[in-house]
Design a protein around this nucleic acid. Structure first.
Lengths: 149, 149
DNA sequence: CTAAAATATAGTACACTATAACACTATACT
DNA sequence: AGTATAGTGTTATAGTGTACTATATTTTAG
């Protein structure tokens, strides 16, 4: 377990948005108002966001959206790799590494709820013989430096 | 990513049960009928089991249990490290490595739903400086050798 | 042995998370 | 314009999990 001291920059919401637009464009999909708004809410949040919180935040500008509305946007965005789902929190976070797909690895502070994203190195020692990995969920929960006091 | 060909034995439900009893004993906790029954249902299942399926399987022998009943048993068992929760499936599996705590790593076939448990080596390259990991969720989804055909 | 403390069970009610199914609208393309 | 496709709105419901209260059962200490 090696501590990591080199800098990991964090993209601004504006940068994230620009990337999202571009990826969407390259894939020939439409970055609609709704999708943009949902993405922005996630990108501007300080931590992982829950689907029903997004739902609340869409009101009243987008009428009274129902769950499928937000889940469709979430599916779309995660299908393009623009956001990740944090499985153990039932929450969503904007991808900080938007250039190209990668295996995301999260470090989540249980005190301040901050989340750090890394790209996992696929040094998995002990894959069952012949197992073809399609998707990985890697989430670490603990206490961050700031909260250790 | 190194394929792993050495043998990983799988414990029988009987062995799992014996270990569970022992761990429970060592901790001075009570392995009650309810807890034993829930543990057995999980240990005898071929794959991860969902809480509400357990609930169904407890009937009618244990009356008409309500969700809190099964969740309490699940909390107890996972608190002792006897079962693990598979986060992305909302499901539970008996721990195959019951001697001592470890970081579990799962390989789950999306076709046959079989699950292989490994002990994760904590070679995490890039932990944020000062982050103290308390709990890790590591789950790989894909296609197993048998289903690759 | 008995009372107090700790542990375990039961149940109600509700909160939170997610999807199926169907109707409708907007956009893209010849 | 007409058709195919993609996107959105809505209703209803399924699936997952917990807060809270009450009761019963050990275990421990006096």
């Amino acid at each position: 377990m090696t501590a990591c001291k080199h800098e990991h920059e964090h993209k601004t919401p504006e940068q994230l948005l620009a990337t999202a637009r571009q990826v969407c464009d390259e894939q020939g999909r439409r970055f609609t108002k709704l999708r943009e708004h949902v993405f922005n809410l996630i990108a501007r949040s300080t931590g992982p966001v829950k689907a029903y919180d997004l739902l609340d935040q869409l009101r009243p500008e987008f009428g009274s959206p129902k769950p499928p509305t937000v889940y469709r946007a979430l599916d779309f965005l995660s299908g393009l790799g623009l956001i990740h789902r944090v499985e153990a929190l039932n929450a969503y976070i904007a991808c900080d590494h938007s250039q190209g797909r990668h295996i995301a690895e999260f470090f989540i502070c249980e005190t301040c709820e901050n989340l750090e994203e890394r790209s996992a190195n696929d040094h998995i020692d002990c894959v069952p013989d012949g197992f073809d990995i399609r998707r990985s969920v890697i989430e670490h929960y603990g206490i961050c430096k700031n909260c250790a006091a």
